Simulated assay, not measured.
Amino acid sequence: MRRHTFRTTLTLCAAAGLAAAVVPASAAAPQAPPAPEVVAVDCAARGQDRPGDYIIACGDGNNRLTRLRWTSWGPDGAVGTGVNVVNDCRPYCAAGTLRSYPVTVRLDRAEVWKAQPDLRRFTELTLSYPEASPDQAARVTYRLPG
């Protein structure tokens, strides 16, 4: 009888140890990324956190940012690089050519977003062109939707 009790005890301890080793692995939920403190509101009134693409000309899409890579993003501003794709509208926009310009992007002036008061949104976008630019200006600033 003693043998049976020892074997049963050993089996129960092994099972409990195995269960203890397995439960934390299966119970551990993946960590969600932290909620953004500040967003860039897009043309569809959605808050974007570090967007890869961003349309500047909401009406016709003839001015947009692509291949965005952000080096910083926070409540005091965001800085990144990318490509500004602009329709030259020559001879008119429907027949124009999309031209690409390397650009440095800066987002500033974060304010409370009325649509989602728990978030702040950037209200200003500044593009700096290290080379050529669409309108020969080295720097352009836009007011963002939201």
Rank of each mutant, 00 (worst) to 15 (best):
L65R: 07
T126N: 10
P145H: 06
W70M: 02
Y142F: 15
Q116S: 12
C43W: 05
A21P: 06
C93L: 08
R3Q: 11
S128P: 00
Q116D: 14
A138D: 11
L98C: 00
G80T: 11
R109N: 15
V83Y: 07
Q136D: 13
A132T: 10
Q116H: 14
L12F: 11
R3T: 11
D49G: 00
Y92W: 09
T104F: 01
C89E: 12
Q48L: 11
R99Q: 13
G77V: 09
R46F: 12
V103H: 09
P33A: 13
A25T: 14
I56L: 04
P51L: 03
S72N: 11
A132E: 10
Y129R: 08
T81Q: 14
Y129M: 07
A44N: 11
G96N: 11
N63F: 04
L18T: 15
D53H: 05
A27S: 14
A132N: 08
T97K: 14
P91G: 10
P51G: 04
A137C: 00
T11F: 12
G59R: 11
S128V: 12
T5H: 09
P91Q: 12
R106W: 01
Q48N: 06
C93Q: 12
N63D: 14
D88Q: 08
R143E: 13
T141Y: 04
L144K: 02
E131M: 03
R106I: 02
P117Y: 06
A57F: 03
V22D: 07
P117M: 03
T9D: 00
D118F: 03
D76N: 13
A21D: 08
R139P: 00
D118L: 04
T66Y: 00
A94D: 15
R2N: 13
A40Y: 01
P75L: 14
A32P: 00
W113V: 02
D118P: 01
G17A: 13
K114L: 05
P75I: 15
Y101T: 09
G61Q: 07
A35N: 03
T11R: 08
G61I: 05
T104M: 04
Q116M: 05
Q136M: 06
G77W: 09
A115L: 11
T81C: 02
G61E: 05
A78Q: 03
V22E: 06
R64P: 00
C43H: 06
G74K: 06
T5I: 13
D53G: 01
L107V: 02
R99V: 15
C58Y: 09
D60N: 15
D49L: 01
V38W: 04
L127T: 05
A20E: 08
P134I: 07
L10P: 01
R120C: 02
